[in-house]
Nucleic acid binder design. Structure first.
Length: 274
DNA sequence: GTGTCATGCGTAT
DNA sequence: TACGCCTGACACG
């Protein structure tokens, strides 16, 4: 269940194993049989992530687009690999490595024009555009009367943030998630952007989402934080805030659950209706 | 075994 | 706003 950091990490780690090598491809589940037949025997020339999307480039010009959706998962390992699950959408192997993809929302061949259209619909990616994404984010939020919580999930506003990061980033920024997006001061939007760059890059490096500062939990490094100690507010309804002990609140005003601390993220500005 | 839920998103109503 | 899609982990009986 991936946010943008997972896709950037996949591009980096899969790139090491698969770029520059011919691949055998198949679709045990059958739903990508034609595409797998087209790609079989081709050489991968590059793997790129943008937001939550992944693009594999092949030497005959084909482009494979993968979006994991809510359930999609990669398994990557060195050969020999176990039998693929019967619902594997795509299995890809070199002489030494094995990739197994199950449950994606999208696994399809697309044209360069389709890739351009798709990318044009995405906001700035904190991992790809750390330096100049803030201006773009400010522009894209300036006319939105939706809440900042809803805006951060909209991939047209910013690409790669999902439901975990949006709650955690707004906690770190001290902003209530139901705050009207266009009511935010430019410096507050810049702050959200800077925090998203740090958080997603950290997530990409570690392969998991850790937003809690290690010293707040009495350990040296984020890697030492146990499951359950890594996040400030996500899925912590009723638990004491790690900073002020106030019970964490939750709402699903926009169809997805969002969590916040009522003291650390006060209602100081315009809120959208609950 | 069954039911529920989940880090997503497009389409229909 | 609701639903459909796709899978796996976990709680419960």
């Amino acid at each position: 269940m991936p946010e943008g950091h997972v896709l950037h990490r996949a591009a980096r780690l899969q790139g090491r194993r698969f770029c520059g090598k011919p691949v055998w491809t198949s679709s045990p589940q059958g739903r990508f049989a034609d595409g797998a037949a087209t790609l079989n025997g081709q050489t991968i020339t590059g793997i790129d992530a943008l937001g939550k999307h992944l693009f594999y480039r092949f030497d005959e010009g084909d482009i494979l687009h993968v979006h994991l959706g809510l359930f999609g998962k990669f398994r990557v390992r060195s050969l020999p690999a176990p039998e693929p699950s019967p619902n594997a959408r795509l299995v890809m192997e070199t002489a030494t490595d094995h990739l197994h993809l199950a449950g994606p929302t999208a696994c399809e061949l697309i044209t360069p024009e389709e890739e351009d259209d798709l990318c044009a619909r995405l906001g700035p990616d904190p991992i790809l555009d750390p330096a100049d994404g803030a201006d773009e984010l400010r522009r894209r939020l300036s006319r939105r009367s939706i809440s900042i919580g809803a805006a951060l999930l909209d991939q047209k506003v910013v690409a790669g943030i999902g439901n975990v990061y949006r709650s955690e980033l707004l906690f770190l920024a001290g902003i209530h998630p139901l705050t009207v997006a266009k009511a935010l001061e430019p410096w507050a939007i810049d702050d959200i952007w800077r925090r998203s760059v740090v958080a997603l890059k950290d997530g990409e490096k570690m392969g998991k989402i850790v937003t809690v500062l290690p010293d707040e939990m009495g350990v040296e490094s984020p890697r030492e934080l146990k499951r359950g100690d890594r996040l400030y507010v996500y899925k912590r309804t009723g638990a004491p805030c790690r900073r002020c002990a106030e019970p964490i609140e939750t709402s699903n005003a926009d169809g997805r659950n969002v969590w916040w601390c009522p003291i650390c993220q006060p209602e100081t500005m315009d809120l959208v209706a609950r």
